[in-house]
Write a protein that binds this DNA or RNA. Structure first.
Lengths: 135, 135
DNA sequence: TTCCTTGGTTACGTGGAGGGAACCATGACG
DNA sequence: CGTCATGGTTCCCTCCACGTAACCAAGGAA
């Protein structure tokens, strides 16, 4: 595919732009945030970075199951939205640090409240599902 | 806690940290709930139902862009998880009411805190995106 | 010379979420 | 009889998020 200029595979910005084009309702903003937070790895990565700056391979090891492709893509999405700062140290071998920005920390706080709600009501949801499926 | 968070230092960070530290079921539950809330229409529908019970075609008209297929599927998912109560009035033509359960209202509260965060930082995100895309 | 590391990129394949449109049962109304 | 409204269901198709695997550049070590 190789969308735009850099010759690198990238996140589909057009789709995000389309989502942003629909404005007006606050619910649209929530959807926008959920598109970001609701993907498979963003919350996990933000949570991991909440413990301090990490290098690429540290994240790779610290987040079991993530592929370098998804790690790279997710980090770039978070960087694009201003949640993560990417710092390259021109050493050999290369060393790249990823850290939460202040904005990223506010996202982390919001994610915590979402997780808190999830944990509080996970049992309620499970019960409701079992009851529904029993019928 | 609804919008402010001023009521209590409500978020149990230690508990969430514990849940996420265990690379097992609790973390999966969090992801499970995020998957439910992160789909395309759930939050929008919950937001809509926050204004009171609605009938199928009222939702269809009130949520622009949703197809009857997705409306039906999403409502059933929300009902299964205990967020929505479906009430059939055996009239002619049939009349079906969807309303938030108490559990659904807690989800709405959480969505509200998300909205606040989103509205607070929407400009930051937009700026970050423009800056990133400019490079 | 060959291997090791870091920090990625690229090609390829797949499942499932979601869109579109047609279809359906019921009964009142005209 | 045909038409309208409600509250959906079913089929088909597209697209893209994600997974897998291979590859790459640079330089130090052995």
């Amino acid at each position: 595919m190789t969308t735009s200029g850099a010759g690198a595979e990238s996140i589909d910005h057009a789709r995000i732009a389309a989502a942003l084009a629909v404005r007006g309702e606050p619910a649209c903003r929530v959807r926008d945030v959920l598109d970001r937070v609701g993907d498979k790895w963003s919350v996990t990565l933000v949570h991991e970075l909440g413990g301090g700056a990490r290098r690429f391979s540290e994240l790779r090891r610290g987040v079991p199951g993530i592929s370098p492709r998804m790690l790279s893509a997710t980090l770039r999405g978070l960087e694009r939205d201003g949640f993560v700062l990417r710092t390259v140290h021109p050493t050999v071998p290369p060393q790249v640090e990823y850290a939460l920005t202040p904005l990223g920390h506010t996202l982390l706080d919001t994610a915590w409240s979402l997780m808190n709600w999830a944990l509080e009501h996970a049992d309620d949801i499970d019960d409701a599902r079992r009851e529904y499926d029993a019928k």
